[in-house]
Nucleic acid binder design. Structure first.
Length: 475
RNA sequence: GGCGGCAUAGCCAAGUGGUAAGGCAGAGGACUGCAAAUCCUUUAUCCCCAGUUCGAGUCUGGGUGCCGCCUCCA
């Protein structure tokens, strides 16, 4: 089975075929860097990170572009509040983006362009749209002429009249039609501005993605992703602009993929509801990998509900996975025996079957929920083998470890251990030795003291027939 | 009003018309000095009604309930 993706343009699952064989051009809408990104933002970052990894696994050379929006109303407002420049604000939260993204196992994009570093490209794009007759200048603003674009509404499946009914005109806007949207905004006092053929001003929101996508990926790209709420107006506008600028009658994007919303208490997260949480704050309450696991435990297009219970369940799921890998590594130190009568052939076949099921699930519109089910099939297989056999051949450990490496490469689970205890390994080992001696002497009071002390330092002990093993506690 | 989505065990969640994956939590058991981890056993007539079919969670129609977009928003 080959990869199928649900395309919002056709609202059907379609076989994925890239424009250029063996290569994928992939644009994903990135954050506006006026604050830490919130927990809802982290969903597309995580699920499309997995889509990118999966495409790479399938053998494509993936160019993954994710922008930083570093100039818009929110940026200006926040910078003024903080008494810093828009540029300083952007630099701060771009750094914070990378910090949070890394913790969540999100890989850096191939290219991460900033709007303010592409003003020339933006101006060029706007000029092309004007030249092609789909935009007009109005007192220093430039607007996209929606009525001139017959395809407008084809992505969000709305007709112009219905859209018109909900459209709003801001005071001071000089549009011909309420649906027209700004490509370029004339300078207002106190705002950053750039020179343009239409006077001093700054780019509108949607145009940066068109300009940067075209620069790094070409005028027609394979995949464009974002949250469902971006379908209208952002992506509808982007498509109109990009196609109006290229004038080549080819679709801007072949596959539009959108993630479902993350809800809090079954409601959309919003500041007015008071249910707004940054990813940073969430990671202080739950392990980052629990958040990643949670995001991948449902299909990316389904809505998911962010609740403490769900996150605790996810944390326990990650712990089960980590325990298995830890047990495997521990056993590989003392239980290797190539004369073991363990049936490695059957084991290898079961691993292969699970990998095939996993592959089918991933190819089926990135069904990570089903895929995680198969990953737990591996966990169970490895745990059972460890339980039932005192000694196992070297190949068992090689196959198991490479299987977990494979799943980790795709899903980013369980990720990497980084949070080290304040104790160093020697101290831990010494205490374990002392405890082992105490246990031999049946001094269980002392042995439990040591175990409790280590627990308080984030180290969990487990006694096994091969000795005591320790691990970092998962929260 | 227009467009769209969802409804599967206590909770989360897969599921291609042929008698319900997986995770979490719970119960019982094994193992353990006690734990922890792990293993074994155990927990669902798939929102309601009608229809199509030999057979429906899965298709059709009609309800009911919840959610999202149409406005800055992942």
């Amino acid at each position: 089975m080959a990869l199928e993706l649900f395309n919002d343009l056709t609202r059907r699952k379609e076989l994925f075929t890239p424009i250029k064989e063996g290569e994928v051009t992939f644009y994903s809408c990135g954050p506006t860097v006026y604050d830490f990104f919130h927990i809802g933002n982290s969903r597309p970052f995580i699920v499309f990170d997995v889509l990118r990894r999966w495409l790479e696994y399938l053998g494509y050379k993936v160019t993954f572009v994710q922008n930083f929006t570093d100039i818009d109303d929110k940026m200006i407002k926040r910078a003024n509040e903080e008494g810093i420049t828009v540029k300083e604000l952007a630099e701060k939260f771009i750094a914070e983006y990378y910090r949070d993204a890394k913790a969540l196992g999100i890989r850096p994009p191939t290219v991460a362009p900033k709007a303010t570093e592409h003003i020339n490209e933006i101006i060029d794009t706007i000029s092309k749209i004007i030249k092609n007759g789909h935009a007009y200048v109005s007192e220093g603003d430039v607007y996209f002429d929606v009525k001139s674009w017959p395809n407008y509404g084809s992505l969000c499946k709305q007709n112009l009249d219905d859209l018109e009914a909900g459209a709003r005109v801001e005071p001071g806007e000089k549009k011909k039609d309420p649906l027209d949207f700004a490509l370029w905004k004339a300078k207002k006092s106190g705002e950053p501005f750039w020179q343009s053929p239409w006077g001093e001003g700054r780019p509108g929101w949607h145009i940066e993605c068109s300009a940067m996508s075209s620069k790094y990926l070409g005028e027609n790209i394979d995949i464009h992703s974002g949250g469902v709420d971006l379908i209208f107006p952002h992506h509808e506008n982007e498509a109109a602009q990009s196609e109006a600028a290229s004038g080549n009658n080819k679709p801007f994007v072949n596959y539009w993929v959108h993630n479902g919303f993350l809800l809090i208490d079954n409601k959309k997260m919003s500041k007015s509801e008071g249910n707004f949480t940054t990813a940073r704050a969430a990671m202080q309450k739950y392990p980052p990998m629990a958040i990643r696991f949670f995001m991948l435990s449902a299909h990316y297009r389904s809505p998911i509900n962010f609740t403490p219970e769900a996150l605790e369940q996810a944390a326990n799921g990650v712990a089960r996975l980590k325990n298995c890998i830890d047990d495997l590594n521990f056993a590989s130190k003392s239980r290797v025996d190539n004369n073991s009568d363990f049936d490695i052939q059957i084991f290898e076949k079961e691993l292969t079957d699970l990998k095939a099921k996993f592959t089918d699930a991933m190819n089926d519109d990135l069904n990570t929920a089903a895929a995680i089910g198969d990953l737990f099939g591996v966990v169970h297989l490895v745990n059972s083998s460890l339980k039932d056999n005192a000694a196992l051949p070297e190949k068992f450990f090689e196959l198991s470890k490479s299987a977990f490496d494979f799943y980790n490469d795709i899903l980013g689970l369980p990720g990497q251990d980084e949070n080290l205890s304040e104790l160093d390994e020697n101290e831990i080992e010494n205490l374990i030795t002392e405890r082992t001696n105490a246990r031999k002497a049946k001094n269980f009071k002392r042995s439990d003291e040591i175990r409790d002390f280590l627990k308080s330092k984030g180290i969990t002990l487990e006694d096994t027939p091969q000795g005591t093993k320790w691990k970092l506690s998962v929260n």
